[in-house]
């Protein structure tokens, strides 16, 4: 369906090659970027690998399978994260029901205890599994939480400045996004603190076409204050697998869907 829509858009461009394209509004850019980054397809499965490097150059590794399903485009989503590495978290499952109107629901399954834990933490700007990526970087920051301004438009990018509506909930004063005009994927983000200094930077290092969806397959998040950084790569990406809603329930915390998790 989406492919069809893209094809149709291509045809439309062919049909009116000379006509000046109507400039997109800021909201349209933000919406498209949000959908391109976090809502590709109706669902998706991927194997993610994070290599975390601290300020002393020591590295740690996380490997997990991530399953996502969109309840509605741009709205509610389910995430299911099954850990393969390191050994001490192997077989643990982290599950999120991302909500729009209230805090997300988060669960952690500890297999050795057969324990389904409800996670009380609601702050999305905390490290995801000890990496330099935050929860919000993995599952998306709600677009309604910032005001957006188009600062610059280059041949390749829309450059957006984003200011939080409620600064008390975040650690940044603002952040700038470079959004690729072709794919609408943000390819760079820089977070600025209260003194105007860039202290955190995300850089997309590789974009690949997967089943017709431009997909970030390698991204780097740097903490410029400490010099630590994390490189996250995705492989075995598949879209539109017809994931059932049921996967995102307690049943599959206890019984991981092997079909998607096997190496």
């Amino acid at each position: 369906m989406r492919k069809f829509a893209i094809a149709l858009a291509g045809l439309a461009l062919l049909a009116w090659p000379a006509g000046p394209a109507r400039a997109l509004t800021v909201d349209e850019i933000v919406n498209k970027a949000n959908l391109a980054s976090y809502y590709a397809g109706d669902d998706g499965v991927a194997r993610a690998r994070m290599v975390i490097t601290d300020q002393q150059g020591r590295t740690r590794e996380r490997v997990f399978t991530i399953l996502r399903k969109d309840v509605e485009d741009g709205g509610r989503q389910y995430y299911y994260v099954y850990f393969h590495k390191p050994g001490d978290v192997r077989k643990m499952v982290f599950m999120v029901h991302k909500n729009m109107d209230r805090d997300d629901d988060r669960w952690l399954y500890l297999p050795a205890l057969d324990l389904v834990k409800r996670i009380a933490a609601s702050d999305k700007r905390t490290s995801f599994v000890g990496s330099h990526f935050f929860y919000e970087d993995v599952s998306g920051r709600s677009i309604g939480e910032d005001t957006h301004e188009l600062k610059e438009e280059t041949a390749e990018h829309y450059v957006l400045e984003n200011v939080p509506k409620d600064p008390s909930t975040v650690e940044f004063a603002s952040y700038t996004l470079w959004i690729d005009k072709k794919t609408f994927l943000p390819v760079k983000a820089e977070y600025v603190d209260g003194r105007g200094k860039v202290y955190r930077r995300m850089t997309v290092e590789k974009i690949e076409d997967v089943d017709g969806f431009p997909t970030v397959t390698r991204a780097r998040m740097e903490d410029l204050n400490t010099g630590g950084y994390t490189v996250m790569t995705f492989e075995k990406i598949r879209y539109n697998q017809g994931l059932s809603d049921k996967i995102f329930t307690e049943r599959y915390l206890r019984k991981p869907p092997r079909k998607y998790i096997r190496r």
Partner: peptide, 12 residues
């Protein structure tokens, strides 16, 4: 009842 006191800190 459990809740987050500060970043990465919880009290239940």
């Amino acid at each position: 009842f459990g809740h987050e006191l500060a970043r990465d800190q919880t009290l239940a």
